[in-house]
Design a protein around this nucleic acid. Structure first.
Length: 512
DNA sequence: TCTGGGGTCCTAGGACCC
DNA sequence: TCTGGGGTCCTAGGACCC
């Protein structure tokens, strides 16, 4: 430990926590000019979806993360509801992480939009003033490179840096001077401490503790008695302002899993079996992509009443063979009662080992089989199956190698709300909605003015899906004439000129 | 209101071994 | 034969986080 005894926090606020503001929703607003300044909700759009991120405009209506989308729609019917586009978020995240990497070799990503950075290890800060300077410059760089805002917390420990960034939101920076942390924490609700969720919060409330200072005063023994050894000791330390967890840059994944919630509960045992097989294949594709193999196969089943159970089986040795994982998952399914219906199925692999190369030919063969299976699965989903396909986005975005689909397996094209498209005549746009054989497209792009909407037949040959465009104009690209100031200002005015109206082809203009 | 998907860590009991 | 203790692995479930 670099400083004194265990339990000390660093005497200088050189641990930085970055949290991007309403990340997915902000990325969508940057990508779609007509949505800037308006409520945007990103999440599963199916009937069983939940909110991943709500823009600040939507939060004013009471919409928040993890809320069922159905409820969000009641609270904020006029918001734009979009499926997540992880390829876009990952691209932006990579840009942000690259900026963090310039500050220090010690960067610990927590998710696409959040990370800790040890500024001291990077040699860019050794006191409060230099840390603040580095934090402000980082925020400016993120804004310049991605067009998005992030909030920064600076403190002598991870916990406090994270609390600081929360207080800084949105678009701010908060630095907690070492020495002031206990005083700062004392009146805060217990829920701000990492590891205190709904259950622990309720547990503590029943024991008469609602603020951090009450936890510290209760003492370690009491908390251990209430919450168990690990949880109790860690909570006591956190509540007392002691947190010496280091920033760690690389951690190996310990498990890989995939799961699907179905729009409609599954009853048919054969169908359930088929889905488990598909999930096993998808899980193995991910496992192999990570260059790992695993020894324990886990089946997860959520029943109609939301009761959830897992069954696991440990193999004699690690595997990345789809047939082996499929069979193990199938065996595990035999021990599960599914009468009444199944709302979710999942397959995972734990006990990961580094991938061991066996027989190159066997590997190539099983890999091919797996991706063919995946392709079949995808094609079937697209069809208007009676049981309905996946909830939400389900399938991975462009990121992974798009599975080649046989031409004859190509049914009606499916247009995902919020996804980018290109039209031969009208250029770049995004799908605003589709249904009844029609698809509605708004023609605008990140660096344009808000655009207008047209509706096409879903099989219009001039329309094709496209990859997300960069959110920020490259430095050498000229600004669009007449465009005011930088990005970031929220353009709400109507465009000065409409695109030429095209008669025929169903290009009808409608209002936003 | 009706609850996603991807993870991590912890607990606890039973098996099994020494 | 009537009682042990510890360590590790496996399984299931639960809390929590983003």
């Amino acid at each position: 430990m670099p400083y004194g005894s265990i339990g000390d926090v660093r005497p200088v606020p050189t641990i930085l926590h970055l949290d991007m503001d309403a990340f997915y929703a902000a990325a969508e607003q940057a990508s779609k000019p007509s949505l800037r300044g308006k409520p945007v909700v990103v999440g599963g759009i199916g009937t069983r979806g939940v909110v991943a991120t709500a823009s600040y405009e939507a939060r004013r209506f009471g919409v928040h993360s993890a809320m069922p989308v159905a409820q969000a729609r009641r609270l904020c019917p006029n918001a734009a509801y979009l499926n997540p586009r992880f390829a876009l978020y990952r691209a932006v995240s990579d840009q942000v992480m690259e900026l963090l990497g310039r500050l220090s070799p010690l960067v610990e990503p927590l998710s696409l939009d959040e990370a800790f950075v040890d500024l001291e290890a990077g040699g860019v800060a050794d006191d409060a003033a230099s840390a603040r300077t580095a934090g402000e410059r980082l925020r400016a760089d993120i804004k310049a490179v991605t067009g998005l805002t992030g909030s920064v917390g600076l403190a002598g420990s991870k916990m406090l840096a994270k609390i600081a960034s929360e207080q800084a939101k949105p678009d701010g920076l908060v630095l907690i001077e070492p020495g002031t942390e206990r005083e700062l924490l004392a009146p805060m609700p217990v829920r701000i401490l990492p590891g205190v969720g709904p259950a622990t919060g309720e547990h503590l409330r029943r024991a008469g503790m609602t603020t951090v200072v009450e936890l510290a005063e209760a003492g370690e023994d009491e908390l251990v008695r209430l919450l168990g050894k690990a949880h109790g000791t860690s909570l006591y330390r956190m509540a007392s302002g002691y947190d010496d967890r280091p920033v760690v840059s690389e951690r190996d994944a310990k498990s890989v899993s995939v799961e699907d919630t179905f729009e409609v509960d599954l009853h048919d045992r054969v169908r359930i079996r088929t889905e488990v097989g598909r999930l096993a294949d998808r899980c193995v594709v991910r496992l192999r992509a990570a260059g790992r193999s695993g020894r324990t196969v886990v089946l997860k089943v959520r029943r109609y009443d939301f009761s959830t159970l897992t069954r696991s089986e440990t193999l004699r040795g690690p595997t990345d063979d789809p047939a082996v994982v499929r069979e193990a998952a199938g065996r595990l399914l035999e021990s599960v009662d599914t009468t009444g219906g199944v709302r979710l199925l999942g397959v995972g692999v734990t006990g990961l080992a580094d991938y061991t190369q066996e027989d190159l030919f066997a590997q190539a063969a099983t890999e091919k089989a797996a991706s063919e299976k995946a392709a079949e699965g995808e094609a079937e989903d697209v069809g208007a199956g009676a049981e309905a396909g996946k909830a939400g986005e389900g399938e991975p975005y462009g990121g992974g190698a798009a599975v080649e689909r046989a031409p004859e397996a190509l049914p009606e094209r499916r247009w995902h709300a919020g996804h980018d498209v290109r039209h031969a005549e009208h250029g770049a746009g995004w799908v605003q909605g589709s249904g009844l054989g029609r698809v509605t497209v708004r023609f605008e792009e990140p660096t344009s003015r808000p655009g207008w909407v047209r509706t096409f037949k879903v099989d219009d040959p001039d329309l094709e899906p496209s990859d997300p465009l960069p959110l920020v104009r490259a430095a050498d690209e000229p600004a669009e004439p007449g465009e005011s100031a930088g990005r970031g200002d929220q353009v709400v005015s109507s465009p000065a000129s409409r695109p030429k109206s095209r008669s025929g082809g169903g290009g009808e203009i409608s209002s936003p």
